[in-house]
C-alpha cells in the first residue's frame, strides 16, 4: 500500500509540476478576490476565512479527476486488483497520496494568503486547523465521485455536480470552526462537528470507493 503511495508521489513529481496547479489556482483566486473586493483590509480580513475555504474547495474540484482515471485508463487498476491488494487498501492509499499531493500544498500556502488578507493570527490558525480537519472529508467525496465516474470519458462537469452537494455541510461546519477557534480553541463544538464529519466520511468512504472501483472493473 505504501509502495503505491510512494509511486504516485514519484509520478506526480515527474509530471512537470501538474500537481502544483491547485496551488496556482489558489493564488490566482486570492489575487483576483483582492482586486474584485477592493484592497480594504477590514473587508478582506472579515471575508478571509470564507474566501480561503472557497478557494480550497474550487481548487480541489479541479484536481480530483487525475487521481484514479489515469490508472484506470492505462490498465494499472486491473493489475493492482490482480496483485491481490485489497481494493480498500488501494482506496486508502489513493486518499493518502491525494492528500499529500493536492491538499498539503494548499495548506502550506494558506497562512501566507491569510496574512495577505490582513487576518489576525488566531483567525489564520483557526482557518488552517479547520482545513486540516475538514479537507479529508472533501477529498473522500471527490475521490468517491471520481471512482463512480471512472468509466465515463469526459466526466469533469458530472464530477463537480456530484461532489458539490456533499461538500456543502463540510464547508458550513468548516467555516463555523474557522470562526469558532478564536472563542473556543480546537475543542470548540464546531471543531468536534467538523472532525466527526471527516471521520465519518473517511470511514464510510474507503469501502464506498472500493465498491465503486470493483463495479468499474466488472463492467469495463
Amino acid at each position: 500500500m505504501i509502495a503505491l503511495t510512494l509511486r504516485d508521489i514519484k509520478l506526480a513529481m515527474r509530471s512537470s509540476g501538474a500537481w502544483l496547479h491547485g496551488v496556482l489556482f489558489l493564488v490566482v483566486f486570492t489575487v483576483l478576490s483582492v482586486i474584485a473586493l477592493g484592497a480594504d483590509k477590514t473587508v478582506l480580513a472579515t471575508l478571509g476565512p470564507a474566501l480561503i475555504w472557497l478557494a480550497v474547495v474550487f481548487s480541489l474540484l479541479l484536481s480530483f479527476e487525475k487521481g484514479l482515471t489515469e490508472d484506470a485508463r492505462d490498465g494499472t487498476l486491473e493489475q493492482l486488483y490482480l496483485s491481490a491488494m485489497p481494493l480498500s487498501a488501494l482506496a486508502a492509499s489513493k486518499l493518502l497520496s491525494q492528500w499529500i499531493l493536492i491538499v498539503l500544498p494548499l495548506l502550506i500556502v494558506t497562512p501566507f494568503i491569510g496574512y495577505g488578507f490582513g487576518m489576525e493570527l488566531p483567525e489564520i490558525k483557526g482557518t488552517l486547523l479547520a482545513l486540516v480537519i475538514g479537507t479529508p472529508a472533501l477529498l473522500v467525496y471527490g475521490t468517491f465521485a471520481s471512482a463512480c465516474l471512472i468509466s465515463y470519458r469526459s466526466n469533469g462537469l458530472l464530477l463537480i455536480l456530484l461532489t458539490v452537494p456533499l461538500m456543502i455541510p463540510t464547508m458550513i461546519f468548516g467555516l463555523d470552526a474557522s470562526d469558532g477557534y478564536a472563542a473556543g480553541g480546537v475543542f470548540d463544538k464546531s471543531f468536534q462537528a467538523l472532525a466527526g464529519l471527516s471521520l465519518l466520511a473517511v470511514g464510510l468512504g474507503i469501502p464506498a470507493i472500493a465498491a465503486a472501483l470493483k463495479t468499474h472493473l466488472e463492467t469495463s
Binding site: 509502495a3 503505491l4 509511486r7 509520478l11 485508463r73 490498465g75 494499472t76 486491473e78 493489475q79 491481490a84
Partner: peptide
C-alpha cells in the same frame, strides 16, 4: 490469488524508468 493478466492496456507508466516500472509490480 492465482491470476496474472496481460491485456491490451499494459499498465506501464511512461514517466518511470523500465526498472522502476517493473520493481513496483515485483514489490507488490
Amino acid at each position: 490469488q492465482i491470476t496474472a493478466f496481460q491485456g491490451h492496456r499494459d499498465a506501464v507508466k511512461p514517466s518511470l524508468s523500465v526498472y522502476e516500472n517493473l520493481v513496483f509490480w515485483a514489490r507488490l
